[in-house]
Design a protein around this nucleic acid. Sequence first.
DNA 1: ACAAACTCTTGACTTGATCCAGTATTATGT
DNA 2: ACATAATACTGGATCAAGTCAAGAGTTTGT
Lengths: 138, 138
Amino acid sequence: MTDPADLLRKHGLPITAQRLGVLRAVAARPHATADAIAEDVRSGIGSISRQAVYNALGMLAGKGLIRRIQPSGSAALYEDRVGDNHHHLICRTCGTTADVDCAVGKAPCLSASNNAGFRIDEAEVIYWGTCPDCLTKA
Amino acid sequence: MTDPADLLRKHGLPITAQRLGVLRAVAARPHATADAIAEDVRSGIGSISRQAVYNALGMLAGKGLIRRIQPSGSAALYEDRVGDNHHHLICRTCGTTADVDCAVGKAPCLSASNNAGFRIDEAEVIYWGTCPDCLTKA
DNA sequence: ACAAACTCTTGACTTGATCCAGTATTATGT
DNA sequence: ACATAATACTGGATCAAGTCAAGAGTTTGT
Ligand SMILES: [Mn+2]
Ligand SMILES: [Mn+2]
Ligand SMILES: [Zn+2]
Ligand SMILES: [Zn+2]
């Protein structure tokens, strides 16, 4: 059921060692960059090209199997946890990223005061601040 | 009072043609990229280096005279309107960016349900969707 | 007008990500 | 199991946004 190969099959995606590796890596380390994921996959299956990592991440994100977060001023992060509209808390000092449950519920979790005629499909919320570790060091 | 040169002086910044040009360009076209601002300044004072544009934008943003917005997957945007904690609405199709007043008030305008020990100093909110123009074209 | 402090220009460089063409792998039909 | 078509992977070039560093040029305070 949650078998990675079945998950790919269920979405009509050909099963490859690279995609399985990427799926596993994303599950293993939430909020990792494409680069960190590539490293992780390499330590599992020996090697993978940068392009294959981006292809897999893009495809999986497109199908809704994983989620992409793009914090200002750093590489995109990927995670496993989808469908629950949670938000993120990022440390300005060390970049540590933590999950925050949405205070409201379903996406879009906030209604804009004046939507200017737009049809809104997502409200992206990122809280910036300082993490506990960096607070004690400061 | 709102004279650009006075504004710079008031913040202890030496007055240069480049900085004045950047200030004027940012005021003239809200939510423009550094590149668009450079073009605008060039049409005003003849020429400016890319670096000078980045220097000026960084310095002005640091002093709080302008605000930088960094939408996922595109270049940073700059604007004049500061100090009112407003948010943004971005069209996924054409990139058009509109202002939205904050529904709550002062920053951080949202309290996270569980702050995980972080000290939050900003809540960045971007609404994604489709603008009126792109809706009719679709 | 002078010196000190600061800014601007130029060109190389970095990072994150994408494009492309050729090769290899996977899935499908017999 | 085998041939074939569809699809994915690789390696290298390329791109966009932004940063770095050294020397030339401005601005400011006296
Ligand atoms: Mn998360
Ligand atoms: Mn705005
Ligand atoms: Zn931290
Ligand atoms: Zn649009």
